[in-house]
Design a protein around this nucleic acid. Structure first.
Lengths: 153, 153
DNA sequence: TCATCATGTAACATATAAAGTTGCATGAAA
DNA sequence: TTTCATGCAACTTTATATGTTACATGATGA
């Protein structure tokens, strides 16, 4: 299966935007993410609906963070991008007549539910600010400033 | 992403085979699974390598269970089919230079690792015999015998 | 006012991976 | 020696995430 990278991508973009007072254009963000501006808009649209970012058209327009990174968790962002399934496995039939398959589905669903549960709980424990802190640790370890990193994309 | 249904499929097949003293052909099993005999052989090959089933060519040939269902867990079967990743999400870049992306990858990897761990542990707690028991409960609930179900595919 | 810039979005194209299919080789049983 | 079954490689199909094009909408500033 081709893996969904929306959560990864949007987190990347959000972290680059953190602290910036000037709007970032989709094109600028797309360059950072190594993708297309339309893809950025698509995924950011979900965040805008939830009020985590704002967008503005025209000259000087673009995207701005509109939330407190210390209170927004990865679970919130995950929800905002549509909660793409974490699970890469499925059943051969979702509503089988065969009782054997029903038993199999049941057993696997138990496991899948547990997995989704653990994933959701984990995401709730990490805030955007936590990610930012980790990023700054990495910067410091290289003896760089936030600006030098930002400007290098 | 298209979901991997190898584990689901092979469990279905195994449960149908449980208790049978006569070999089941790939074609027969494929009919049960609603798929192609070659697909059955492909996925059963992994089980054979691990010694969970045997196969025989020629007249009266086919597949037979070669393990004790009470001691083989879903984790064993999962391993035998090649441990397809449970996780449907990924990073935009596996080895990013960007420190922001490194921080994001790290955070998500933590979650992914936990998920895989939980999944593996869960599978270890369920044996083929457990599945079979659940199947028989379902049969009884319908007032059927094992034979009537088997013959109806 | 109008040229420019940026988002909004639909429609279409591409890429990737799982599953399905075909064809033929191999070997066992009748 | 014919038939039946697996073994397996190569190819096709399908699903879905991502990328791309094109154009509408609306804001800014000269």
């Amino acid at each position: 299966m081709k893996r969904d990278s929306k959560l990864s991508g949007v987190l990347h973009v959000l972290l680059h935007m953190l602290g910036s007072k000037t709007p970032a254009t989709s094109e600028h963000l797309a360059l950072m993410m190594g993708t297309n501006p339309v893809v950025v808009r698509r995924v950011m649209a979900g965040l805008r609906e939830q009020g985590f970012v704002t967008s503005a058209k025209g000259h000087g327009g673009g995207w701005l963070i509109a939330c407190d990174p210390a209170t927004v968790t990865l679970a919130d962002i995950y929800a905002a991008v549509g909660e793409p399934s974490v699970i890469a496995m499925g059943h051969r039939s979702e509503t089988p007549e065969c009782l054997v398959e029903q038993a199999v589905n049941r057993a696997l669903d138990d496991a899948f539910r547990e997995v989704e549960d653990v994933f959701a709980k984990h995401l709730k424990t990490v805030t955007l600010a936590d990610l930012s802190k980790d990023f700054n640790r990495r910067l410091a370890a290289r003896g760089l400033t936030k600006e030098s990193q930002t400007h290098a994309l």
